[in-house]
Design a protein around this nucleic acid. Sequence first.
DNA 1: TCTATTAAAGACTATAAGACTCTCTAATAT
DNA 2: ATATTAGAGAGTCTTATAGTCTTTAATAGA
Lengths: 130, 130
Amino acid sequence: MKYSKATNYALHTMLNLALSKSSKPIGVQTLAEKLNVSPTYLSKILTKLVKEGMVSSVSGANGGYSLTRGWESISFLDIIFAIEGKSSLFECGLDHGPQCQIQKVMLKSEKKMEEELRRQTLADLAKTSE
Amino acid sequence: MKYSKATNYALHTMLNLALSKSSKPIGVQTLAEKLNVSPTYLSKILTKLVKEGMVSSVSGANGGYSLTRGWESISFLDIIFAIEGKSSLFECGLDHGPQCQIQKVMLKSEKKMEEELRRQTLADLAKTSE
DNA sequence: TCTATTAAAGACTATAAGACTCTCTAATAT
DNA sequence: ATATTAGAGAGTCTTATAGTCTTTAATAGA
Ligand code: SF4
Ligand code: SF4
C-alpha cells in the first residue's frame, strides 16, 4: 500500500503554484519541468485538480494553471482525495453489521490520519517552504 | 491506495485463531474455508505471520497453526506490518532535507494512523467479537 | 519403518492498477 | 488566420497483487 506517484506530483505542483507570486497562469510545460515529469501526464493530474475546483485553467496562448481564490485553506487531504479518491483504504466487501470490530478499528485509524491531513493547509505549506 | 486482500485475510485469520478455544493447532484447510480462500494462498500469508513470531506452526498429522503466547498484546499494526511491510506510505525518492514540509506532514499523519492501530490489540478484538 | 497428513518453499500464471505516451479536439490571445 | 495551450480518449508498458501448481520437509500414528 503506497501513495501513487500522481499524488506526489499533485502535492508538489500545488506547492509550486502556491509559491508562484505571478498573477499570470503557469503552463503545464513549466510545471512539468520542475518535477521532471512529462507534460501530458502532469496535465491529466492537473485536470483532476481543476475538476475538484482547487485549480483554475485557461486555454490558449498565455494560458495555463493557477490556484483558485480561497486556495490558502486547501488541505493536504483535499489534494490527496482529488487524486486517490475518497473511498476507504480498507474494504472487505461484506457487511457483518455493527458487531464487526475489524472495520471499526480500520476505519477509525484511517480517520485519524485524515484528521491530521485536513489540518495542514496549503498556506501552512507555502509559508514554511518559501 | 488500498490495503491488500492479504491484509484482510491475515486480520480475519488472526481473529479466528484468537476465538478458537481449542488447544490443538488449526489446519490451514479449516482456516481457509472460513474465509473462502484457497488454502495454498492463505498458507503463504500464515507463513509471514509465523516469521514475525505471532503464530506458531507445527507440521505433520494433527499439525496446524496456533497463536504464540503473548498473543493478547499483538496489535493491528503488528499484523498489518507483517503483511504490508513497514515502509512509509509516502516516498518521493529524494531528500531535500529538513526544510521539506511535504514529507513531514505525510509522515506525521501516517504516524497518527499507526498510533491508533497500535492501540488496538487482538485481545480487544477477540473480546468484543466472541 | 512406512504412510498419511500437514506446513514451507519456489516457480509459475493471471489480473489489475499505475504510469505513462500519442493523437486529436477545443479554447483563446495576438 | 495562426500559434499556443488545456482537455479528452485510446492505447501501451510496467509493476504489484492475487492466486495456482508442484515439490520438499516435518511429524504423528499404524
Ligand atoms: S467481519 Fe467485518 S471486516 Fe470481516 S468480512 Fe465481516 S464486515 Fe468485513
Ligand atoms: S521537497 Fe520533500 S517531498 Fe518533495 S522531493 Fe524533496 S524531499 Fe521529497
